[in-house]
Design a protein around this nucleic acid. Structure first.
Length: 153
DNA sequence: GCCAACGTTGGC
DNA sequence: GCCAACGTTGGC
């Protein structure tokens, strides 16, 4: 089982939304590097839910991958902001996963805390200028994140 | 294939 | 709202 970090703006889709929905297709990723990470996920992998573009940004919960390598339906929806007219239905360009809700961290782990605890090499999200919305998390880093989240209980 | 212009992300 | 970082687009 591998660990990941996935970003979402809470105004668009938050951990509270996922807690309500229980599971959801992670749509709208339109970056090839992020897509490649999504494609390499397998069922049972876990992902930290990161709130971006909010105060404070940070990790707010945990989810699991419940369905791997699915076609992102929004690429073919002309009314979606994620519509991609160049994507060929015979060979869809954008694939993603379905995620399931596992937990909301009582205290969350703010970006400031993440910067204090991890180097940019250990955790991509603390890297200056990092814009990638899906990234792998080393197992040792994941264990430390879970321990920090537990402390906040 | 280069690169300037442009658009988006996301912290601050 | 600003702006640094950086990916994408399109003219040449």
């Amino acid at each position: 089982m591998r660990y990941w970090l996935m970003k979402s703006e809470p105004d668009v889709y938050s951990i509270a939304d996922l807690a309500r929905d229980r599971h959801e297709i992670w749509d709208g990723v339109r970056n090839y590097q992020a897509r490649n990470f999504l494609r390499s996920m397998t069922v049972g992998d876990r992902a930290f839910f990161y709130h971006s573009n909010t105060k404070p940004p940070g990790i707010v919960g945990l989810m699991e991958i419940v369905k791997a390598d699915i076609v992102d339906p929004s690429q073919f929806d002309p009314h979606s902001k994620y519509y991609d007219p160049k994507s060929n239905p015979e060979d869809p360009r954008w694939r993603t996963v379905k995620v399931g809700y596992l937990a909301t961290f009582a205290a969350g782990i703010s970006l400031d805390q993440l910067k204090a605890q991890f180097t940019p090499e250990e955790l991509g999200v603390v890297r200056r200028g990092n814009r990638l919305s899906v990234m792998p998390v080393d197992e040792a880093v994941a264990a430390k994140l879970l321990a920090i989240a537990q402390q906040g209980e």
